[in-house]
């Protein structure tokens, strides 16, 4: 425990698969209530990095501390494991795969509360109703199975489930990538509102630089497992220093865009 330290502090995180180094010395700080985007293309190590933060992968090196508590070592017992799970929650890309198809929305949220809180049945029911209201879902959706919901509604359920344990940090791994653009804007709005009210820190994993502009304070550009550039969003998107960041930015389609210039083909 490092006294007085606040936020999520990641230092020298490494992960190897055989000969391949997927994540190679990644360090960053997410202040409490801050919003950091991790951008990169496939194979950049962005997903592996956040999977280590939530404990889905074991790091081969480096440390992760949240509010001074070390999360890198194996947890001592069930209590500590649950406490760690509560502190950092994750929302995945595919709302079709991240929910159990046989459990209703109400049941899904209730299960999380039973595992992590001491609330009785009535207390849990009230909290489920609160959570659903918070993400803009009603009683009809509460009794529905995931297959009865649209993609946007399922992603709202995934967010409600993550919020149920009052996390300090929410990891959003391409959480809006699979949604229609009109629905994506709704979810981005919801996330902005939640962050303002609850002061949860966001770690946005995304390939979409236009989304980064609107959701993050800071951005980290990953390539082949290493950080090539990081800094405030306006600085990195406005005057990128690394050639790879410049390549990424010039690859984003927009009006008047000439892909031949990006790729150097005439």
């Amino acid at each position: 425990m490092t006294a007085g330290e606040k936020g999520l502090v990641v230092e020298g995180l490494c992960k190897r698969y055989g000969d391949h180094t997927a994540v190679d010395g990644v360090s960053f700080v997410l202040p409490p209530g801050g919003s950091l985007a991790i951008v990169g293309e496939s194979g950049s190590g962005k997903t592996t990095t956040v999977r280590m933060l939530v404990g889905l992968e074991r790091a081969d090196g480096g440390t992760v501390r949240l509010d001074g508590h070390d999360r890198s070592a194996r947890p001592r017992g069930r209590e500590e494991r649950l406490a760690r799970a509560r502190a950092v929650q994750m929302v995945f890309q595919d709302p079709y795969l991240s929910l159990d198809p046989r459990i209703t929305v109400r049941g899904c949220l209730d299960e999380v509360l039973r595992l992590h809180t001491a609330l009785d049945a009535a207390g849990r029911a009230a909290r489920v109703a609160d959570l659903l209201d918070r993400v803009g879902l009603g009683a009809r959706e509460a009794d529905a199975l995931p297959r009865g919901l649209s993609g946007g509604q399922r992603q709202r359920v995934a967010i409600a489930r993550a919020l149920a344990v009052e996390p300090r940090v929410l990891v959003l791994d391409e959480a809006v990538a699979a949604l229609d653009v009109s629905i994506q804007a709704q979810i981005l709005d919801l996330l902005r509102e939640i962050r303002r009210e609850a002061g949860i820190g966001y770690l946005f994993v995304t390939h979409d630089l236009a989304v980064v502009r609107h959701v993050a304070d800071d951005v980290l550009v990953l390539r082949s497992g290493t950080v090539v550039e990081s800094g405030p969003v306006d600085r990195v998107l406005g005057s990128p220093e690394h050639p790879y960041t410049r390549l990424l930015l010039s690859s984003v389609p927009r009006r008047g865009w000439d892909p031949a210039e990006v790729t150097g083909r005439g």
């Binding site: 293309e41 390939h207 630089l209 390549l247 990424l248 010039s250 690859s251 984003v252 389609p253 892909p259 031949a260 990006v262 790729t263 083909r265």
Partner: peptide, 9 residues
């Protein structure tokens, strides 16, 4: 996104 730029080009 960089591959997209190449394919579109």
């Amino acid at each position: 996104v960089t591959t997209q730029a190449e394919v579109i080009s």
